[in-house]
């Protein structure tokens, strides 16, 4: 059956990676290289680029020309980027706090029921994000699902103004990305051998220690995968900030969108995403290094 496979380990390795390399290499890497090149060109006023080299797009991220045409520092875009990172971080944390216990609970269920729970987690996401977000407006809005009974019973006599706030954005983002956190954690927890917990318990570990010293370390790959899956898409999110937050402050996602739509400055949009890409890649490399070092230390100890 496996005769046709290459004999050497390296050959097999590359055969296994070939489909990924082929699909992502052609349909993702090449387009991104094109976009990278675009970010060093001049914008064509009505979308697209002119074949003239320019660093203007990168300069624009942190500087602007004032009324006397002098180049001055402009923290505007950097603020937007910083704000987006903050928000994504918060949403990731919320997803983790909310999602981890649930993923753990699912693994505690009998085997035949686990897939049912996993399915329950995904069903809501069969409906369109925009429609789900609208449902949140009905829930949080003036005289909505939450307010109506409170108003009727006289507990409150004016709107709580829950909508169009940072809290509403946080709820929206958490809601949008929860399954991206729960599923990977579940996938890595599911293989947890509960005899380990018994062993720990026999060694007089208390419940808290069992959680922090056994369960969480063992589910780390899932937690990391979940955090990455939530954090990065959150950076580019624009539906929740716009619809639930009222779009009063630009986020990175809307800013990039804006460059390809109204502002028609493709190089700047490209430059912003190259910046984002480098930040994410550098973070991941650091993380990989740290993980490797730790593994090496544990191995030698």
């Amino acid at each position: 059956m496996s005769d046709w496979l290459p004999k050497s380990a390296a050959g097999r390795r590359w055969l296994g990676l070939a489909p990924s390399y082929f699909v992502i290499g052609i349909f993702m890497l090449i387009p991104m290289v094109i976009m990278g090149v675009f970010s060093f060109l001049e914008p064509n006023p009505y979308g697209g680029v002119k074949p003239i080299g320019s660093l203007a797009a990168y300069i624009k991220i942190a500087f602007e020309y004032d009324l006397e045409d002098k180049l001055v520092f402009n923290p505007g875009y950097l603020n937007i980027i910083f704000r987006s990172f903050q928000l994504s971080f918060g949403a990731t944390l919320l997803c983790l706090i909310f999602g981890f216990p649930v993923a753990y609970y699912i693994t505690l269920q009998p085997e035949n029921r686990r897939n049912f729970y996993i399915y329950l987690v995904t069903i809501p996401f069969w409906t369109n994000l925009l429609i789900r977000t609208f449902a949140w407006i009905i829930i949080l809005g003036r005289g909505g699902v939450i307010e109506a009974p409170l108003l009727a019973t006289g507990i409150i006599d004016d709107s709580l103004r829950m909508m169009y706030s940072d809290g509403a954005i946080a709820i929206g983002l958490t809601y949008s990305y929860l399954p991206l956190m729960v599923l990977p954690i579940y996938a890595s927890l599911e293989k947890l051998d509960f005899r380990l917990l018994d062993a720990a318990s026999d060694l007089y570990a208390n419940r808290f220690e069992i959680m922090t010293k056994v369960v969480i370390p063992l589910s780390k790959p899932g937690i990391i995968a979940g955090c990455i899956l939530v954090f990065i898409p959150c950076l580019g999110a624009f539906i929740a900030p716009n619809l639930l937050g009222g779009g009063k402050k630009l986020m990175l996602g809307s800013l990039v969108q804006f460059q390809f739509a109204s502002a028609r400055n493709w190089p700047f949009g490209g430059a912003l995403s190259m910046l984002l890409l480098s930040v994410v890649i550098i973070t991941l490399i650091f993380y990989a290094r740290a993980a490797k070092n730790r593994a090496a230390m544990e191995g030698s100890a």
């Binding site: 992502i24 990065i232 580019g236 890409l277 990989a288």
Partner: peptide, 28 residues
């Protein structure tokens, strides 16, 4: 590490950028 990075690349790029870039590539 490079392979890992490549596989996760589609995740790291804002959607609109992927969208425009891929469209340019397709039409090219």
């Amino acid at each position: 590490t490079v392979s890992l990075g490549l596989i996760t690349l589609p995740l790291m790029v804002p959607e609109i950028v992927t969208a425009v870039a891929v469209l340019i590539f397709f039409s090219a």
